[in-house]
Design a protein around this nucleic acid. Structure first.
Lengths: 209, 209
DNA sequence: TAGATTGTTAATCGATTAACAATC
DNA sequence: TAGATTGTTAATCGATTAACAATC
C-alpha cells in the first residue's frame, strides 16, 4: 500500500492542461477521449498521459478511451476544484488587478473574495467588481472571511512582511508571484510562480536551437 | 567533451532566483556570496547551488564564495540578459496590460517594443507608454522591427491563429500565457507559462499537508 | 478478426544528493 | 591550525519511456 503518494509534481502540473482539452472535447459533444488524442494535442507520449490519468482513479475502455464526464469529475475532485474556495489577493498593482479580472478562476475552484492594498488612493475603490480593502485590516478580515488561500502580488520588497501577516491571520497556502521566496512555518504551503524562470528557459532554448 | 549540454532545464529555471539574490547582496555592498548563503535563502542545499552555478563557468574561492560582480555578469551573459532584446506583445487584455506595465523586464534583457490588439477601441491608445497597434498589421510590423520574441496574451481561443501569424512574421520564440499549446514548426521555440499548473500543485500540497 | 487502445512492469534516463578531496 | 567553503565523482532517487499482455 503506497498510501498517499507524496507528490508526483510533474504529473499534477500536467493535469490542468489535460482538463482544458477534455472540457473542450465535451463541448464538442464527445463522450470519450483517448490518451493518444490528449498526448497529440500536447506533444506528449500517450503512455505518460495514461500514467498521469491513473492517479485520478478513472479507468479507460480499450478502443474507446476515457469516459469524458467521469474523467472531468475525477480530475476536478482530485485537484479539489469541484467546489469553490475563497481566497484573498494581496497587492492590487498591475498583476494583481489582472488576476482580479481573470474570468477563468472559477474553473479552478478559486474565488477571490477579498483584495487588499496599502495605497490610500486604491483603498475603497472597486477593481473588476471587487472592493479594495485597507491592507492594515488584512489580518482581521482574513479571519472573518475564514480565508485559507492567499494570492501574493505585492512588490517583492513587501513580500516577507505581507507573508508574515498572512501566516498570522491563519492562511494555509500562499500563491506567490513575487521574486522573494518568503520564509514561513512548515505548516504553510508556498507555491512560487516565478515568471522569470520560464523566460530564462525560453532564452536558452532559443540560443541552443 | 560534452559540447552544448542540451538543457538541464531545472538548473536554468533556478538561475533567475539566484541572480535576484546576488543583485540584492551587491546592493548591500558585498563583494562575495557563498553558495551556502544562496541555498539558505531559497531553501535549497548548497551543493545544488554550486552545481547550478558551475554551468556559468564562474569559479568560487574557498572560504569566501563567489565574486559577485563577475558572477552577475556570467549569469546574465549565460541567459543572454546582458543586452536588451526587443519583443512583441500580442493581446492587450488584463494580463497583457499588466506585463506592459511591468518595470522589471529590462533586468531580464527584455524590452517590449510593440503591442498588438484586435479591438478597435484599444488600437491607437497608449497603455503604460506603449502605443497599441492593429493586430491586422502585426505581420508587417514585426518584420519591420525585426522582432524575434513574442509574448502571447490573447484569449485562448485566438492562440493558434495568433501563433500562426507570429510564425509567418519570422518570430523565433513565443512566451505563451494562453491555455492552448500552439502547434508551430520545429524551428520555433514555445515556452508555456501555465499558471493553473502551479495552482494545481498548491492545492495538492495543501491537501497532503 | 485485426487493430486501437488501456494498464502495468521493468528499463532507461536525468536530476539530486552524499561523500570527500582540495583550498585558503 | 581548524573550519568554511568549493568542485567533482559516484550513489541515489524519481520521472519518463519501452515493452508487452489484456481488452474489446
Amino acid at each position: 500500500m503506497d498510501n498517499l503518494k507524496i507528490s508526483a509534481a510533474p504529473s499534477i502540473r500536467r493535469l490542468p492542461s489535460y482538463l482544458y482539452i477534455i472540457r473542450n472535447m465535451q463541448r464538442e459533444g464527445e463522450e470519450y477521449i483517448s490518451g493518444t488524442a490528449i498526448a497529440q494535442e500536447l506533444n506528449l507520449v500517450s503512455v505518460q498521459v495514461r500514467k498521469d490519468l491513473s492517479i485520478t482513479g478513472i479507468k479507460g475502455h480499450p478502443k474507446k478511451g476515457y469516459p469524458i464526464e467521469p474523467l472531468i469529475g475525477a480530475i476536478e475532485h482530485f485537484l479539489g476544484w469541484d467546489s469553490l474556495q475563497d481566497a484573498a489577493l494581496v497587492g492590487v498593482g498591475n498583476l494583481g488587478s489582472a488576476l482580479l479580472g481573470y474570468q477563468g478562476f472559477q474553473l479552478h475552484g478559486l474565488n477571490i473574495a477579498a483584495a487588499f492594498d496599502a495605497n490610500p488612493k486604491k483603498i475603497g475603490t472597486t477593481v473588476h467588481g471587487i472592493k479594495i480593502m485597507n491592507a492594515k485590516t488584512m489580518d482581521i478580515q482574513i479571519r472573518n472571511f475564514g480565508l485559507k488561500i492567499a494570492i501574493l502580488t505585492v512588490p517583492s520588497t513587501e513580500a516577507q512582511n505581507a507573508a508574515d501577516t498572512l501566516v498570522s491571520a491563519g492562511i494555509e497556502g500562499i500563491w506567490n508571484f513575487t521574486s522573494v521566496k518568503p520564509k514561513v512555518p512548515d505548516r504553510v504551503v508556498v507555491q512560487n510562480e516565478d515568471l522569470s524562470s520560464g523566460f530564462a528557459l525560453l532564452c536558452i532554448k532559443m540560443r541552443n536551437r
